[in-house]
Write a protein that binds this DNA or RNA. Sequence first.
DNA 1: AAAGACCATTGATTCAGATCAATGGTCTTT
DNA 2: AAAGACCATTGATCTGAATCAATGGTCTTT
Lengths: 192, 192
Amino acid sequence: MYEVYFRHLAKKMPLTADDQALIQRFLSVKKIRKKQYLLQEGDVCKVIAFVEKGALRSYTVDGEGKEHILQFALEGWFIADLYSFLTGEESSYNIEAIDDSELVLINQSAYKELLQRSPCYQTYMLDLITGAYIALQKRLNATVSLSPEERYQDLIALYPDIVQRVPQHMIASYMGLTPETLSRIRRRIAEN
Amino acid sequence: MYEVYFRHLAKKMPLTADDQALIQRFLSVKKIRKKQYLLQEGDVCKVIAFVEKGALRSYTVDGEGKEHILQFALEGWFIADLYSFLTGEESSYNIEAIDDSELVLINQSAYKELLQRSPCYQTYMLDLITGAYIALQKRLNATVSLSPEERYQDLIALYPDIVQRVPQHMIASYMGLTPETLSRIRRRIAEN
DNA sequence: AAAGACCATTGATTCAGATCAATGGTCTTT
DNA sequence: AAAGACCATTGATCTGAATCAATGGTCTTT
């Protein structure tokens, strides 16, 4: 159940069997089916989810009822509303399974305690969140300095599996475009 | 020299005099004048800078030679190209002082060693980067789900000092707008 | 104090992407 | 297998922001 998770963790740092045993006691596993919610707007985000298998997305709904996808999470990624998770405030995000998925979860109290108890886990989280922060900065930078064409090509190059496994209108939303516009961009790319 | 820095750090967690003494040995101080660079595109980012006083910005230059501001850092904030800092690769960002500024710096080797040696510092960094990540997510979300008007109003509400102290065309760039468009938005807001 | 550089504002025009609308295709459900 | 829902694509039109251009104001530099 925890294979992908600990492989991921071990890739970032040396991990003793003791470390692993300690950490594992604070985790739990959850299966979630396509279109089910892990978090709904208005609820408090109770867990950080690591994706063992499957795919999820987080999104918000704006004033006009339109969805805006903020993040995809495939195998080896994590997803949560960290703000809500850490403060206990209501979330304004939704997190939903795109496919049937298997998750490794950690809840708020376990997270706080595990950070205290396991230097190893703390190092891992610092690493993980730093990586997520850097990725987000890159994305923001791409958004302002590249054309939609270029951004789509980058997306294909960087995350080919996302483009394979996620419906096109979701990718459009993720990129801040309408489905029509993304369709036309794809045609333009194909023509050249 | 380190007042703001340690006040900031102590706000996030209990900090003993020993902790502080240890941490301080790994830091250094630098003054930088308006329009000077802390980092230039093509160089490796050698330090994480905490702003004691003054203001800095980071930006990229796109294919057409246009600048895109990614971040402002005022007193109490940090700024760096973390990707370049951590990997040692060349940066594609520029970091420049908007005003004469005083910085608290930590370099790569000091950062890595201090993380090993001071659990306190590690906790602080996890906290700091998590906060930065959450802020960036919020910004990304605002970008896709709010109108430029709303985003500008939010900016005024959230960071009034930025709007006071940073020239308007930089705020426009930060928001992904041209100076002309921001000027018109301000007029529309003033008219209502 | 004068000259030059930079900046915010305003107006006119252009353009990229959104919106509106229709169609055929695929996936789901019964 | 048929019906309905959902999706990608294409076309026509609209709209908000970019671009181009000009002006007066302020800050720098000498």
